[in-house]
Design a protein around this nucleic acid. Structure first.
Lengths: 161, 161
DNA sequence: CGTACATTGAGCACATTGTCCACTGATTCA
DNA sequence: TGAATCAGTGGACAATGTGCTCAATGTACG
């Protein structure tokens, strides 16, 4: 369930320059085109690479405020329905059930602080949500990244094969 | 700073089937190829689309545990150096400075609960970090997404072409 | 030793890309 | 009203990359 150094280089190269084709990638890595294609296919099949979709910046769309909202949920209600209704709120970008004193942790975005209040109100209105507690992200010194994992993983795991 | 309905449809189409070319995309949307290309270029230039890189699943690499770690930082130390040292830890996928009782919120992954302890130890060892508090993500009913935002944004902003 | 697998290098037909162009229609502004 | 600007259209072109196939090679493993 790991990747080798070549896999990592392929991913890193495509991450750096997504417009590269398989052919150009194989040239730069010094391997045959078929190898790169096979690696990509295999990683896609194994779920390591989940897609090549466009990455959209919420901030560029006007959603400049990011917040993390911890929810407490009435035990009797059932978390599933809460998740469904949260999913209906576009500004909820992510939701996890969690350990600790809270029950769910959501990442939400909004067009401003006043708009964040509106979004939180939408969340509170979801049946089963008892209480919310929010923290606002002031700055993001480390934006979402996975590349360190990719270049690190080969060192831990399988030899080539 | 918004996108219109056509932009949203272009993004949605590429998100659904990234292997589509510009030409096929234009065919399905019933517009000229040049239009799709121009829209993509413009959205890339405006920062709405930040890239087309491969999306990697940490879980598929063996990092099956996700946790959110809240840090308290010694005020005198300075947050910048803390962020730099956190960035050196591959398992730290994201870090924000936040409002509230904590000072930073990090998303971290690990290969298991025992490994999470190792990662948290790495974080604690960072100079300036006074205390940490972790919650583990048990389940992720809403995985990271932005599409609802994309399809929602046109309604707020520009005319619909 | 034989099998299985990954890789290589080559070739092919086909589709797509990047890049031009001229023309249209709508909007804005003097 | 007339001029200018912008986005979109439809077409064209050469150059390139793609998906696919094939046989041959080298290596790991039982």
């Amino acid at each position: 369930m790991t990747i080798d150094a070549l896999d990592a280089r392929i991913i890193a190269l495509f991450a750096a320059e997504p417009k590269l084709g398989v052919l150009e990638c194989s040239r730069r890595l010094g391997v045959a085109r078929g190898t790169v294609q096979a690696r990509l296919d295999r990683m896609a099949a194994r779920g390591v690479i989940t897609g090549f979709g466009p990455e959209v910046s919420p901030a560029a769309l006007g959603y400049v405020v990011t917040a993390f909202v911890t929810l407490q949920i009435r035990q009797i209600g059932g978390r599933a329905s809460v998740a469904d209704r949260l999913a209906a709120i576009p500004e909820v970008l992510e939701a996890h059930t969690i350990t600790g004193s809270g029950d769910m942790l959501c990442r939400v975005v909004a067009r401003g602080n006043a708009d964040l209040q509106r979004v939180i109100d939408l969340i509170v209105e979801v049946g089963g949500v008892v209480r919310t507690s929010s923290v606002i992200a002031l700055d993001t010194p480390i934006p979402h990244r996975v590349m360190p994992l990719v270049t690190d993983a080969p060192r831990h795991g399988a030899t080539g094969t």
